[in-house]
Amino acid sequence: MPVSHLTMVERIARVLAGRALSVNADGDDPSAGPSVDETWHEYTDDALSILRTMREPDPVMAAAGDPDMWERMVEAALNVERAVGSA
Results as ranks from 00 to 15, higher is better:
D28V: 08
L21H: 01
R55E: 11
P67C: 10
E42Y: 04
G18K: 01
M54H: 06
R55P: 03
V84S: 07
L48G: 00
E10A: 08
P30L: 07
D45T: 13
L48N: 01
S4A: 15
H41T: 15
M61S: 10
S49M: 10
I50K: 05
P67V: 03
A17F: 06
M61E: 14
G65K: 05
G33E: 12
E10S: 05
P59E: 11
S49G: 15
R72S: 12
Y43D: 03
L16R: 05
A17C: 13
W40R: 01
S22C: 13
H5M: 09
G85F: 15
W70N: 08
V74G: 01
T53M: 13
L16C: 12
V36Y: 01
V15S: 05
E81A: 14
R19P: 00
M1A: 15
G27N: 04
A76F: 11
S35V: 12
A87V: 13
L21R: 01
P34S: 03
A83F: 06
L6Q: 12
G65P: 03
V80I: 14
S35Q: 13
L6F: 09
A64K: 05
P34V: 07
S86G: 10
D26M: 08
M69P: 00
G27S: 06
E10Y: 04
A20F: 11
V9P: 02
V3W: 06
H41A: 14
V60R: 15
G18S: 13
V60I: 12
M1G: 13
D28E: 13
T53K: 12
G33Q: 15
D58P: 03
M61F: 15
A32L: 09
V15M: 08
A13P: 01
S31W: 11
D37E: 11
A20Y: 07
N24E: 08
H5S: 14
G65F: 05
L21C: 04
E56I: 13
I12T: 02
P57V: 11
R55M: 12
R72T: 09
V3K: 09
V80A: 10
N79Y: 01
A47H: 01
W70K: 09
E71Y: 07
A64D: 07
M69Q: 10
P30D: 06
V3C: 11
D45L: 08
V23I: 10
G27W: 00
V80K: 03
A47D: 01
S4N: 14
T44C: 04
T53S: 14
T53W: 13
S4D: 14
P34F: 04
N79R: 12
T7I: 02
R52M: 00
R52V: 00
L21E: 01
L16I: 12
A64C: 08
Y43T: 03
E75D: 14
A20R: 06
R14H: 10
A25I: 00
G65S: 06
R82C: 04
A77E: 01
V36F: 05
V84K: 09
R52T: 03
R11G: 13
A17I: 02
P34M: 08
E42M: 07
E42W: 05
G65V: 04
E56W: 04
E10K: 08
V60W: 11
V60F: 13
A25C: 08
V84Q: 09
D66F: 11
A63W: 08
G27K: 05
V60H: 15
L48C: 03
V80L: 13
R72P: 02
L78K: 04
